[in-house]
Design a protein around this nucleic acid. Structure first.
Lengths: 246, 246
DNA sequence: CCAAAAGTGTTGTATCTACACCCATGG
DNA sequence: CCATGGGTGTAGATACAACACTTTTGG
């Protein structure tokens, strides 16, 4: 890299923070890590870390995700194999957001299927899935998320809620093969509403390219055997899934 | 600011770049500045600059906008007075996007009404409104936009195109008072399609809170006098404006 | 009078909501 | 046999596309 006068620009630290969402036990949950050091020592925070000198922002986010969870996000244009969806969310750069120094954080959003167990990576002092509602409530053990992470999480949740309206992204929360009912429960957990199972079924099976039947069936949810589907190639839902009034 | 070991993190330069869009002469146009120095000397680029040590990202974007155009963007929750809309677009941090050093750029999107004349600010060597189509075409004087700015501009245009579907943001392209026909021509220019004037009229006047009549009329577009409106308080359009198939 | 743009009415179609109803399994 | 979830049929409401038609100005 050619030399450049470092006094000509103010130096910043650049980090990536991750909003990793999944649906567990009928609730929208986010990944939180316990901070081992000051500031906010002992408080919960979003996973994240410094961007390395030679990696792209998305690479940095994927690396941090793998370090924390073992998940390998899939590029959007790859075949629909099991794996998380990753996209850039927004960038947070308030001068006072980190008391130590000027840090600009590029937040990313990850949508993942329910994972067997959160596998703590390098920092094993504490990793957990927590319901978003808990993490954003006023008194999470009297200690809300560190830094501005509550706001970042809220933005990520809002993005997920709106994106599943007009895209097929909700399938990122499901295992490779899933039933229409399982997909509906994802929508219900993310939106926090109840949907009519019959109209939902018609809607998703009637949208070309959204779901492709695998041929198999399952009774893992009880009741009559349900067809198994995998995510189709379509990414945009037109017309969109309508979110009931709140 | 408390001290922090600078060797613990790699230093980055952080900039803001601006995608400033307006509608002029029935075409969607973006603000471009001529670069006075290397690299890409003499090429067109998006306006932008370094974030200062003590300002927020949005403040930096607003400051650069004012320096380049004299526009004062309005906070979204302010009364609907004339002025531009500003929002964060996305962040670009490819390690090789600036040949001199590692630069992370937080791009912002500005939607502005047609301005009397682009007022060159500090850097007067060249500022112009250019049709987006021209700036993104393969041979803009055999010299496309500098750095990765063509991609940033394309992302900004795509964001504007989709946001006017489900929000009232298209009014940000209009003067304080405007007619339904003028608003329709904004949609037509941004989407590059023709809309049925009659159905459009019904749609926008029938959506509560979108438009509020000012009482006046104008014949500045010729023909029968048209009612003047200003932007109403509503920001979300439900149901959305439907973009015809392309 | 004519062109041009504004605005209203009407008809057919697509899509959604709500709910009655039947199907196939496990216990 | 019954509870549970899967899936289909149908009627009314809403919104939209398409287009005929009237209104009000400037030239």
């Amino acid at each position: 890299m050619p030399p450049y006068d470092p006094s000509a620009f103010p130096p910043f630290a650049v980090t990536v923070d991750l909003v990793v969402l999944t649906v567990r036990h009928h609730a929208l949950c986010a990944l939180a890590v316990r901070r081992g050091e000051s500031p906010f020592q002992g408080r919960w925070a979003l996973p994240g870390g410094f961007v390395r000198p030679d990696e792209d922002l998305e690479q940095a986010a994927a690396r941090e995700l793998a370090e924390e969870t073992g998940l390998q996000p899939q590029p959007d244009d790859a075949a629909p194999v099991p794996g998380a969806h990753l996209e850039q969310l927004a960038t947070y750069g308030d001068p006072k957001r980190d008391p130590r120094m000027r840090v600009v954080s590029v937040a990313h959003l990850v949508l993942a299927p329910d994972l067997p167990a959160p596998r703590p990576g390098g920092d094993a002092s504490g990793v957990r899935w927590a319901p978003v509602e808990t993490l954003l409530s006023r008194d999470e053990d009297q200690s809300p998320l560190a830094f501005d992470h509550a706001g970042i999480l809220a933005d990520g949740v809002e993005r997920a809620r709106s994106k599943i309206e007009y895209s097929s992204l909700a399938t990122a929360f499901c295992p490779q093969e899933f039933t229409v009912g399982e997909l509906r429960r994802v929508y219900e957990a993310v939106w926090g509403v109840a949907l009519d199972p019959r109209n939902f079924h018609r809607k998703v099976t009637g949208t070309p390219g959204f779901l492709v039947p695998t041929g198999g069936t399952t009774t893992r949810q009880g009741g009559r055997p349900a067809q198994l589907f995998s995510a189709g190639g379509a990414t945009l839902l037109n017309p969109p899934m309508l979110r009931p009034e709140v």
